[in-house]
Design a protein around this nucleic acid. Structure first.
Lengths: 259, 259
DNA sequence: GAAAGAAATCTCAAATATAGAGATTTCCGT
DNA sequence: ACGGAAATCTCTATATTTGAGATTTCTTTC
């Protein structure tokens, strides 16, 4: 654990609240982080006043309303989500599947919108769920279209993961796969993220360099037998291109904000 | 602007990102907050590394992936949401309306789950949207059931708002309204939050003192003519009671966590 | 591909705010 | 109203933060 300044120590406090554990008592936090009592309470008080944490009736602390509100803000004013929503609905209405939009955050993939018409809960992928960087059509649809100078470091850094996903034995083989995705305009994956589920995805651009997100569709493999990958790729690519067009226009003419 | 310690200054930075404005450039932040360049960049770097902010291709900053992930965590492990979901679906399936769960955060009401079957977009109320404290059935359903020592300060602090909402001219009149809500077990409101929309709501308890949330249903007034308020109150109360029962049991037997 | 311009980071000393031990107050259930 | 736990306060030594300016890194333009 490197030297931490006070802000990092506060953030370490927020880091405690994870999937494994969403409620912590002050004493447990002290044990875990080694902060003194007054210090911990000072931090807690400020975070609580700002709404990042709330105290439960049980005496413990959890994440607070501020988190929910900030996510609401993001959702509500995210043009990507707004423009993608009709497409998600259209796609899920046409066949039992999950359609999702995954945003590229520079070194992390996160689902930001999804619709699901498949009865199979396995395929569902809600907003907020992180997506692995080395596997899946969505991830490949984004990485493949990154500008060279960003693509190479990411590929080399994740080479092991990509190899395990079966993309190829060495760097060149993996790069070939990405080249092929670029040529086709979309990526296909067979059960890489969820076993038994086929995924197809195409990149979304906003006019800047490189994709900012991807539109993906996943279907249970048995259902996908009828919908062949090429056809799905076609549909996904077209929708992704339309969304990109909207974003591009927004960017040029300035965002028509709020409402 | 009172004296602020460094943590509060960092939070003030996050406060900038509001409904009005979700993208800020470093220079704009400096102007707004008066921090020096190195200080601002130090803050930004840490917040960015922690994922609370991201830099946009345009050079500005916005809220980052961490926010979305934290909301996902909360949503996914919120027993209130989990237990309420089937009821929301059941209620919205029965008639065109919006059913929502609003959590009480000690001094703030926030919608945490909602389903909508009404074609009228007016009635929709998505997760993350704050709810006014002085108006609406949901708010009243919660406040009315607070323990005395919490109820009084809140009512007196918001007396003006409550008066404007038409609850009564003075403190005693307002308290009478709440007493009546307690007697009925649910609250009814006519167009208080959204004009032309009728709301009915009942409190949800988890076994501690005071309600932790409310279940609400809103319908366009014309559609509500057929469903009289008493009947809606009945349904909402029953669902709220069932949800309370689940939460109570969870609390006693310990949470069956994760999955 | 080089050069100008902008953006981000670094250096370092002064000063200021922070940390923590222990005392004290407030809160809560009985 | 009481007792025990939870949260906050006081105060000083000390470590940390701050900010001006220099410097590096990245980006855009030619």
């Amino acid at each position: 654990m490197a030297v931490r300044n006070s802000l990092e120590r506060v953030i370490a406090l927020l880091d405690l609240f994870s999937e494994e554990r969403l409620e912590w008592s002050p004493d447990e936090m002290m044990d875990e982080l080694g902060y003194s009592r007054p210090t911990l309470y000072r931090y807690l008080k400020t975070l609580k006043e700002a709404g990042f944490l709330t105290s439960m009736p049980s005496g413990g602390f959890t994440l607070g309303p501020r988190v929910v509100e900030m996510d609401f803000l993001m959702r509500r004013s995210d043009r990507l989500v707004a423009h993608a929503q009709p497409h998600l609905e259209m796609i899920t209405a046409a066949a039992p599947c999950t359609a999702l939009v995954v945003r590229w955050y520079g070194h992390k993939l996160l689902c930001v919108a999804s619709e699901c018409s498949s009865p199979d809960a396995q395929t569902s992928y809600p907003r907020g769920r992180p997506m692995p960087l080395a596997r899946g059509a969505v991830s490949r649809a984004i990485i493949a279209f990154l500008p060279r100078r960003k693509l190479l470091p990411i590929v080399t850094a994740n080479l092991d993961g990509l190899r395990n996903a079966g993309l190829g034995e060495d760097l060149d083989a993996v790069l070939d796969v990405f080249r092929e995705v670029r040529r086709a305009g979309y990526a296909v994956a067979h059960g890489e993220v969820t076993p038994g589920v086929i995924g197809v995805a195409a990149p979304i651009f906003d006019g800047g360099s490189g994709p900012i997100a991807a539109l993906g569709v996943t279907t249970p493999a048995n259902a996908a037998e009828r919908l062949d990958a090429a056809k799905m790729g076609e549909i996904v690519s077209r929708s992704a291109a339309e969304i990109s067009g909207h974003l591009h226009r927004d960017r040029i003419f300035g965002t028509v904000d709020t409402e």
